[in-house]
Write a protein that binds this DNA or RNA. Structure first.
Lengths: 245, 245
DNA sequence: CCGTGTCAAGAGCAATGCTCTCGGTTGCGT
DNA sequence: ACGCAACCGAGAGCATTGCTCTTGACACGG
C-alpha cells in the first residue's frame, strides 16, 4: 500500500511484476473459491496461504489485510452482478423484448446468479462486514445495476409503455444532482417521480432475493421462481411497468 | 431449555434457579449491548465473561455455544420487531388511520427501529451467520410482522379501500396451505392474488431498509426518510394501497 | 448433616490476524 | 558489469478467539 504496489521507475512490464500479477490472480481465485463454499466469515488468509503453498506471512505482500481482500472480492462481485444485468438487458433488447420484459429478465438473471453464488451475493447485499466501509471504487461498480434500471425506464417512457402514475409524488429537490443528471429525462410530468420510483424497483429486487435466499420466505410458496416473479411484478406495477408474468 | 424452565420437583422458586435466571438475564443483556455497538461478528464469549466477572469457561454453563447465544439474540430481535410492528399498527388503528396509513406507520416504525439498532436488524435481516440455520422457534416470531401485513390488507379489503389489481395474477395452488389458512379471506376475485402481493410489501420494506442501512442508497436522495416513504409507497401502489405520502 | 449435583476456575488445544525479523533473489541505475 | 536497493518468502511470535477437560468448592435437599 505504501508504494510497493506501483514501482514507478520500472515502466517496462518486468518479469517480477508479471510473477506478482500471476500470484495475485491465483490468490484472488483461491479466495473466491473459499468464499464460494464457506462464506465470508470463514475466509482465512492462512488457509489461502496454505493452498497457495506459501507461508501465511507472505500473502501480506499481496494483500495488506483480510479486509482489503474482502474489498477486492466485493469489487469483483459488484462487477459480476453488473455484467449479469447488462447482459440480460442486452439479450432481451436483442430479442425484441419491451422494457417490462427487460426488467423481468434482469431480475430473473440476478436472482439466478444470487442463487448460484449465495455467498458472493451476501457479501455485497447482505450485512456489511466488520468495520468495512465501501471505498469509492465500489460505488461505481454498484451503480451499474441501477443504470440498467434507469435505462429500462427511460426506454419505457420513450416507447410510451410506461403507465403514468395515478397519484404522482411530490419530489422537488429530493434527489441529488448527480442522480438526476444520470437519469436525465425524468423532469417533466407525468414522469417526474420516476427516478425515486426506480429505487423501489431496486429495493423490491434486492428484498425479494434476500428474503428468499436468507430464508424469510421458507414455506410460503410451492414455486419459488413464480413467487419471485410475482413479487417483483407487484412492485413494478407501482412504478408503471406491467411485467409479463 | 431442557426442563429447567419447569422446575418439576422444586415447585417453589428455588434460590438456585433464581440465581441462574438472574445470571442468564445479565448475560443476555451484556451480549445485547456488545451486539449493539460492535456487531455480531465481534461478539465474543470471552469478552462477555470478562464483563460478567466470570471465567470464560463458566459461561458455557448458561450457553452451550456462541451460535446458541446468537440464536437467543435473534429470537429477541424478532420479537422486538414484531412488537414494534404490532404497536405501530395498533396505535394507528386507535388514531383512526385507514389501512394505508397503518402500513406507512408500520414501515416507518420498523425503519426507525432498524436505524436505532442496526446490528440487531442486520442479525435477522442481513446475511445469515456462519453455519446457522433458523430453528423452528424463530419462524413463529418472524411471522408476527407478516401477520400484521395480512391484517392490514384484510382490513383494506373489508373496508373497501384496497384497489383491485388491474392485471390479476394467476396464483392457483401457488401458496402453501398453512399460508392461505393464515390469510383466510383472500380466495375469491378480485383479491385472490393479494396473498402473494403481500410478499411484495414485505420485500419492499425489507429491501428499502437494507438498502439504506447497508449503504446502497448513499448519495441518492437528500431526504432519506422521504425516499424511504416513496419507495415503500411505490411498492404499495402495486398491491393496491395508496399511501398518504 | 452429609451426599449429590451444580457452579466456577484454570489450563490447555487448535485456530486466527497480523507484525517483525532474517536471508535470498531480482533487477535497475550508475 | 556491478552493487545496492527494493522485493519476496519463511519462520517465529503475540494477542485473540471458541471450546473442552479436569479439579475444587459451594449449596441445596433429603
Amino acid at each position: 500500500m505504501t508504494e510497493q504496489g506501483s514501482p514507478g521507475r520500472s515502466r517496462t512490464g518486468g518479469v517480477r511484476e508479471r510473477a506478482r500479477a500471476a500470484v495475485m490472480a491465483d490468490l484472488l481465485d483461491i479466495a473466491a473459491a473459499h468464499l464460494a463454499d464457506q462464506g465470508a466469515a470463514d475466509l482465512s488468509l492462512r488457509a489461502i496461504a496454505r493452498e497457495l503453498g506459501m507461508a501465511s506471512s507472505a500473502v501480506y505482500r499481496y494483500v495488506s489485510s483480510r479486509d482489503e481482500l474482502l474489498t477486492l472480492l466485493i469489487l469483483r462481485a459488484y462487477n459480476t452482478v453488473g455484467e449479469v444485468a447488462e447482459k440480460a438487458h442486452a439479450d432481451t433488447v436483442a430479442g425484441g423484448g419491451d422494457p417490462a420484459a427487460c426488467w423481468l429478465a434482469v431480475a430473473r438473471a440476478i436472482r439466478h446468479w444470487a442463487k448460484a453464488a449465495p455467498h458472493e451475493y451476501a457479501l455485497i447485499y447482505g450485512s456489511p462486514v466488520r468495520g468495512y466501509q465501501a471505498p469509492q471504487e465500489t460505488v461505481a461498480a454498484a451503480v451499474r445495476l441501477w443504470m440498467v434500471i434507469v435505462r429500462i425506464l427511460k426506454d419505457a417512457v420513450l416507447g410510451g409503455t410506461l403507465r403514468p402514475p395515478a397519484h404522482p409524488f411530490q419530489v422537488d429537490g429530493l434527489m441529488s444532482e448527480e442522480v438526476t443528471a444520470l437519469a436525465e429525462g425524468f423532469r417533466e410530468p407525468p414522469f417526474e417521480d420516476v427516478v425515486v420510483r426506480s429505487l423501489a424497483l431496486f429495493a423490491s429486487l434486492f428484498g425479494a432475493i434476500s428474503a428468499e435466499l436468507f430464508g424469510h420466505f421458507v414455506g410460503f410458496g410451492s414455486d419459488e421462481e413464480r413467487v419471485f416473479d410475482l413479487t417483483v411484478a407487484t412492485a413494478a406495477v407501482g412504478v408503471g411497468l406491467d411485467l409479463p408474468v
